[in-house]
Amino acid sequence: MSAKRALIIRHVPYEGVAGYREPIEAAGYEVDRIDVSDPAFSALDLCEPDLLIMMGGPMGVYEQDRYPWIGCQLRRLARRLDADRPTLGVCFGAQMIAAALGGHVYPGPVKEVGFHPVRIHDHALDSPLRHIVDVPILHWHGDTFTLPDNVDLLASSHVYEHQAFRRGRSLLALQFHAEMGLDPRFNAWIEEWPESVAEAGGDETSLRAAHDTLGPAAVQAGQAMIAEWLGKLQAR
């Protein structure tokens, strides 16, 4: 039997799968990756991989005039979701899932940047998100979305209500970055978007210190969350 294939869609080079790679590979997936800048991306069948992982990016789902690939990706993503194929979205990836399911993605009133916990809703305390209860995890976004129909809201923060949702066992969308905390690409985030740190009321020194102090536990919790999600996915 051939190995299961996981495909990572990377929207910018400095937003990869990071800490999530370990539990994905441990679950038996051969991991591949494609950048949206790759000429082959436009012809890719997004229904084909056994697992699709869409990572973050600084663009907005509503910026399709500036990034024509967004509309193309959304159409192919919608077909995958209609087929109930296993899909994980992180930050911009989660917003793409929301949009593909009929939600509205829009700029929020404030930036959410830094390490703090999310509140897991009572009905979701037995979900894979139980691993991140009370764990400060990284947030880095300014966009948010309306909740699509027929999904289950799992988590909120004190800044934004819609932090995580699922549909059945096959779909998980995470606004936050529990994959980040040990990846040196975090430095590129700060260098690329120092204004976001300032707009959120923080400073680079404090954020780097929080990353060093809180990052390892955040990644450990995020890996446990993804491992449990994949385990339930395989058991369905």
Results as ranks from 00 to 15, higher is better:
Pro68Asp: 00
Met59Phe: 10
Leu44Ile: 05
Arg10Ile: 00
Asp35Tyr: 15
Glu112Arg: 03
Tyr20Trp: 14
Glu192Gln: 06
Met59His: 12
Ala218Leu: 08
Ile53Leu: 15
Pro13Arg: 04
Gly201Val: 15
Leu154Trp: 06
Val159Ala: 04
Arg75Phe: 08
Gly89Pro: 01
Pro194Cys: 10
Gln64Val: 04
Val31Gln: 08
Gly142Ala: 10
Met225Asp: 13
Val151Ile: 10
Phe92Ala: 14
Leu230Met: 07
Glu195Asn: 07
Asn187Cys: 02
Pro86Met: 13
Arg75Cys: 09
His141Phe: 08
Leu171Asp: 11
Arg66Pro: 04
Met54Cys: 09
Glu63Asp: 15
Pro184Ala: 06
Glu22Asp: 15
Arg21Glu: 05
Lys232Arg: 14
Gly202Asp: 05
Pro58His: 01
Phe92Thr: 02
Gln163Pro: 07
His158Tyr: 04
Glu30Tyr: 02
Leu182Arg: 08
Pro68Phe: 07
Pro109Lys: 04
Ala227Arg: 14
Arg208Asp: 01
Tyr106Lys: 03
Ala83Arg: 10
Met96Leu: 09
Glu112Phe: 02
Gly108Ala: 00
Val219Lys: 08
Gly222His: 02
Cys91His: 01
Arg166Ile: 14
Ile53Thr: 09
Pro23Met: 05
Ala26Trp: 11
His139Leu: 09
Met55Cys: 05
Lys111Cys: 01
Asp122Thr: 09
Gly60Asp: 00
Ala227Phe: 07
Val159Glu: 02
Ile137Val: 05
Gln95Ile: 11
Val197Ile: 15
Ala198Met: 01
Gln95Asn: 12
Val31Ala: 13
Phe115Ile: 02
His177Lys: 13
Ala98Asp: 15
Phe41Asp: 01
Glu191Ala: 13
Tyr67Gly: 10
Cys47Lys: 09
Met55Pro: 07
Lys111Asp: 11
Asp50Tyr: 00
Ala221Ile: 12
Ile53Met: 14
Lys4Trp: 13
Cys91Pro: 09
Arg10Tyr: 13
Gly114Ala: 04
Cys91Gln: 02
Ala40Leu: 09
His131Glu: 14
Ser156Cys: 06
Asp82Lys: 13
Met96Gln: 11
Asp152Thr: 15
Val105Arg: 08
Leu138Ser: 08
Val105Asn: 02
Leu125Val: 15
Ser42Glu: 14
Ile34Val: 15
Asp143Val: 00
Asp183Asn: 07
Ala27Cys: 01
Ser157Cys: 05
Glu22Leu: 12
Gln95His: 04
Leu138Val: 06
Thr87Val: 06
Ile53Gly: 08
Pro194Gly: 13
Asp82Phe: 13
Gly103Leu: 03
Ala40His: 14
Asp149Ile: 09
